[in-house]
Amino acid sequence: MAIIQAHSIKKHVVTSAGRLDILAEINLAIEPAETVAIVGASGSGKSTLLALLAGLDLPSEGHVSIDNVNLSNLDEEERAILRGDKIGFIFQSFLLIQSLTALENVMLPAELAGTENPEQQARELLEQVGLGDRLTHYPNQLSGGEQQRVAIARAFIGKPAILFADEPTGNLDRATGATIEDLLFELNQKHGTTLIMVTHDDRLAQKCDRIVRIESGCLQEAEYA
């Protein structure tokens, strides 16, 4: 039973030059604990697909279901609650809140969800990602790799069923990127999380169970690694 399902989703925007189709009809089902890489050239529509699957945006046509809940039937607030419950995120540019420390950044999703005693969990997660001695550092006092580790810890604090990663190693050098990949897959495996990752990096994509390729807004093929 798929945890995420895209039913004939299309996305287009209206610009001054007329209608621009970003995604053509896409159907996709992702099973629980599956790891899926979405690959494709720049501007092919990968990030748009990720936004739709994660409920950050709604498709122009068709619909996305998470755990059999049709996201198009939810308003923005309900989608936010669903994201808080079930989804974690990791971004290329880390997107940590600059005025919060590493520890506080990790605590944030748990606090937003009203979880009791989030600090203990956050400390443990930061220990796990190797940043036990960087708890009170602000993002700009951390290296890129360290910031991404904070983001990974933050993604896992809510014990999400699904993790969306947008080019998680795109801003990092090869060595740091490799460490982050290992950490990501290790935690993913440990928590049994479904991972959906947008990447340029074929090598990274190969680590996933399945690779989905997007070209000019169309789902070209689905390969199994």
């Binding site: 950050l56 940590l96 809140i97 600059q98």
Partner: peptide, 16 residues
């Protein structure tokens, strides 16, 4: 702006 977008992404509702 970014902080709000991040909070909303991480499950923060608009009233919150």
């Amino acid at each position: 702006y970014d902080a709000v977008a991040i909070m909303k992404t991480l499950g923060g509702t608009r009233p919150l």
